[in-house]
Design a protein around this nucleic acid. Structure first.
Length: 318
DNA sequence: AAGACGAAAGTGGTTGA
DNA sequence: TCAACAACTTTCGTCTT
């Protein structure tokens, strides 16, 4: 896994150098799976992933959004935001619009200006904590290998929360982590709460509390994550191929039709479907292995797996 | 010895009075 | 605010391979 990633980096560099191009290492450069060499890569921009159609390896999770970083919600915004200059981004505390005077040779006037700039820039603590929040969002996003558009969305959400004065008196860590968790869900790239917690500096309890608080106060609606959303990533982590991924998704779809998934945790369903699909395709993974990757216990996998195989008439012969 | 199975008790979150 | 509740976890003993 580590080796293949290194190979990918090497390959990218070589290709770029060969063509003498600077800074154009888009994902179009990835033409085949570094693991099995298959050319049938499946791009899924909705989930911001590219995975190999044959071996199921998630080749890239950070699909760089090359479109404009802003979205126009109406024509007025459109005309306001269509502009020249460096891209504006919500991920820099002043949206990337500042110009600092240089520290070169300086007269008294310049020094004064500098001081004034610094003070107004980072003077108040709100601004300070905002900068910290953005850096935290970035740090956690990198650790979770999240695509840029989700980072932007998270930054925007944080701004909204700030405007409504929801941050004061609450831990920035808790709020930012919850916001990231929400953004992932909204973009259909769900991470489990454990995964998010592992890169956060606060505990699960605080994240949950902030999560519920934000949903209520910002009046956000987050649809229940579909088990299917977890399948590609889990399959990849279990080194399971594309046929098993398809099979697992098929099982989940059938189960959803028959309302076997109602009230059940999506991760447990995904885990069981993958477990079954793997056995059906002769690539057995133990309940323990699936349990470790998915973060649900073997007992839950067993229960779901029993329900699914019985109700869907799937004969799982070991 | 490892994996699968399931019973029983415990935990944390949701719901409804 | 409290109790009831469902889903899930933890723990542990048993069976199978």
């Amino acid at each position: 896994m580590v080796a293949s990633e290194k190979d990918k980096e090497e390959e990218k560099k070589n290709k770029g150098a060969a063509r003498g191009e600077a800074g154009t290492t888009g994902l179009d450069d990835i033409k085949e799976c570094p693991e099995c060499g298959s050319k049938s890569l499946i791009q899924d921009y909705g989930k911001a992933e590219i995975f190999c159609g044959d071996c199921g390896l998630v080749v890239a999770e950070n699909i760089v959004d090359l479109g404009p970083e802003w979205r126009a919600f109406d024509s007025e915004q459109m005309s306001k935001r269509a502009r020249v200059g460096a891209p504006m981004t919500y991920r820099i505390h002043d949206k990337g619009l500042s110009t600092l005077t240089t520290w070169g040779s300086q007269g008294q006037g310049q020094i004064k200006l500098k001081k004034w700039q610094q003070r107004t820039h980072i003077a108040n603590t709100t601004e300070r904590s905002f900068i910290f929040a953005l850096s935290e969002i970035d740090r956690m996003s990198s650790a979770l290998r999240l695509p840029m558009n989700i980072r932007e969305a998270a930054s925007m959400l944080y701004r909204r929360a700030m405007k409504q004065h929801l941050i004061r008196g609450r831990s920035i860590e808790g709020i930012t982590t919850a916001i990231l968790y929400i953004s992932c869900r909204q973009y259909g790239v769900p991470r489990t709460l454990e995964e998010v917690r592992d890169v956060s500096r606060v505990g699960q309890k605080e994240i949950s509390r902030a999560y519920r608080f934000l949903l209520r106060e910002l009046d956000l609606k987050v649809t229940v994550a579909s088990p299917i959303d977890f399948v590609p990533r889990f399959c990849s982590m279990l080194s399971l191929g594309g046929d098993i991924r398809s099979k697992a998704i098929e099982i989940i779809k059938k189960a959803t039709e028959r309302e076997l998934t109602n009230g059940r945790g999506p991760i447990g369903i995904a885990a069981a479907a993958i477990y079954i699909a793997a056995i059906l395709n002769g690539e057995h993974r133990t309940q323990k292995e699936v349990s470790v990757i998915t973060g649900v216990t073997e007992v839950t996998i067993r229960n779901r797996y029993k329900e699914l195989s019985e109700q869907l008439d799937i004969d799982v012969l070991l």
